[in-house]
């Protein structure tokens, strides 16, 4: 009986692992197959090897709006978002921890409420705001918005981290003549790399996959990020699967590799209290 239970448990664990991994393996495998082979061997076991799909996906169906440009746009969005997020999030979080109890709790509550504001409520106003400021189809403007949308979560995670920061170090720094801001830049930040990396990665994962805001805000194909572009790919290639799989693997593989390398930091970020929607 006990053996049977243990056996069932291992079957369950392996089955779920297969369910999780197989789609990604298939995406990568089918990306290297010709259209005919995909139809004949839908599980990727057979057929010849080709790089053609990647060329088509990279340049896009029209030759100018493919994954190449989507990746470049996503990179601009991600860099702007992370820069905004950390530049505003880290100092806010740190100086919140220095405030008196009551003010601190109030501010934290504001940020908590902001984290549950659903994106669906923000879509139309953002469209209006972007339209008004000329930011439609501008990846940097979207990056700035993402950085701000992710701000409450970042502040909450970092506040949790900074509130455990040892006083003694801070006091020692002020005895040495550093101002509060100097202490933050030269003592606190260098000692908080793990938490900063963890929050940035969580924000990066959010930014890399977000489409609800990006679909209406980036309607020009040359301005689109990876998720927006991929969503449009399906219609553009009219049942041609090879380039779609190539596009999917180009979109998914970088972020998965980043995750596999840094997964300890990400787990830490989650343990500190946050994930982006």
């Amino acid at each position: 009986m006990r053996r049977l239970a243990a056996f069932a448990k291992h079957v369950l664990l392996l089955l779920w692992s297969a369910l999780v991994v197989v789609p990604f393996v298939l995406i990568c495998l089918l990306a290297f197959r010709s259209e005919k082979d995909i139809y004949n061997y839908p599980l990727g076991l057979g057929g010849s090897f080709t790089l053609e799909n990647f060329a088509i996906a990279w340049w896009g169906p029209g030759g100018d709006t493919g994954v190449g440009i989507f990746l470049a746009n996503s990179a601009s969005v991600a860099l702007t978002a992370l820069a905004t997020n950390l530049a505003f999030g880290a100092p806010s979080a740190y100086f919140i921890t220095l405030l008196s109890g009551k003010v601190r709790r109030r501010l934290i509550r504001v940020f908590l409420v902001a984290t549950v504001v659903p994106l669906v409520l923000l879509v139309v106003p953002y469209f209006q705001l972007f339209d008004f400021m000329g930011g439609l189809n501008n990846p940097f403007a979207l990056g700035f918005a993402y950085g701000s949308v992710a701000l409450p979560t970042t502040v909450l995670i970092l506040t949790a981290f900074f509130s455990d920061f040892p006083h003694e170090l801070r006091e020692a720094a002020s005895l040495d003549g550093l101002t509060a801001f100097g202490t933050f830049i030269r003592v606190v930040l260098p000692l908080s790399k793990g938490a900063l990396v963890g929050t940035s990665l969580l924000a990066l994962i959010f930014v890399w996959g977000e489409s609800q805001l990006a679909v209406p805000l980036l309607q020009d194909p040359t301005a689109q990020t990876v998720p927006v572009g991929l969503l449009a790919f399906r219609g553009q290639f009219q049942g041609q699967l090879g380039p779609i799989f190539a596009g999917l693997s180009l979109a998914a593989v970088p972020i998965i590799i980043v995750y596999l390398i840094f997964n300890r930091f990400i787990a830490k970020g989650i343990a500190l209290g946050g994930v982006f929607r």
């Binding site: 779920w16 692992s17 999780v20 991994v21 789609p23 990604f24 995406i27 994962i205 890399w208 996959g209 489409s211 990876v226 998720p227 927006v228 991929l230 969503l231 790919f233 399906r234 779609i244 799989f245 999917l248 979109a251 998914a252 972020i255 998965i256 995750y259 997964n263 990400i266």
Partner: peptide, 16 residues
């Protein structure tokens, strides 16, 4: 590995 489906872009997952 069980976290990977949550990491991969939701758009890519949906299209696949």
């Amino acid at each position: 590995i069980w976290f990977i489906p949550g990491i991969a872009p939701a758009a890519a997952v949906a299209v696949y």
